[in-house]
Amino acid sequence: MRAFDLFRPKDLYQAFDRLELNGHETMLMSGGTDLLIWIKKGLVSPKEVVDLGSIDSLSHTELRGNDGVLIGTNVSLNRIISHPEIKRHCPALIEACEAHSDAVVRNKATLVGNVCSAVPSGDTIPPLLCYEAEVIIQTSCSKRQLPLSQFLVGPRKKNLSKTEIVTHLWIPFPKAELSVGVYRRASRRRALDLAQAAVACTVFLHQGRPEYRLAVGALSPVPVRIREGERVLNETYDIDKEKVERVVNSVQKAIRPITDVRGSREYRFAVTAELVRESLSLCQTRIKTEGGGR
């Protein structure tokens, strides 16, 4: 591995000082399960890595009643998976975390790190788009909160300057009597592989009326919400075969899959259709089982 220096700040102020001093040569690390591999493969070559893992104040989740949860940068995917309130309100996110890497890597990999890697196949991003998560960004003297959809601007590119740090992710909980959701993906093996195509679908029941949200990953430069598909799903209560196919069409129109080592463009189009059908069907089943036959 190419040599680099490591700075382990005790608090955010030390980290900001460091970034202001030599931010252009520095990369931030949260978990580091992507970063260390990128350095090893020569994809990036920072002179210095600032390890946010040493900052205790970023290692917590903070529940704000039924409004939502604030997730610190150092919170691992396994801690998200075992969080009962996140599981209750954001089940699609839990499934996406479980699809990420494997049970051991998830002790190290963080949710914020997965978002900040900003790769098209980032498992947690499609459900976070459905839940309309926001990224909390700080500098030494300012703070801003940005919808995730505006934070991600391209493969491995994000709306973040060299002196800024993503300190937290805010996930608002859906205001609904029932929240169901699924994350389905195609990959060559179940663990330790990146998605070839991924679909997140969430349904929030408001007084028995469902509100669908749909997002896809690994099918465009950044994961995206499928607004037209959502419009079709939300126009009436019932979902029949014809409606499902209209949603499939809207997804296929919105995506721009590429051919790469993990799969061809043609395969990705075909498998996406299947993932969308499966996701919708699973959501409907779960509404019935979890919603007491509504």
Binding site: G32, L36, I37, A103, V104, V105, K108
Partner: peptide, 10 residues
């Protein structure tokens, strides 16, 4: 459990 190739010694 952690994969020690993904952890920096420090």
């Amino acid at each position: 459990a952690q994969k020690s190739c993904l952890v920096l010694a420090l």
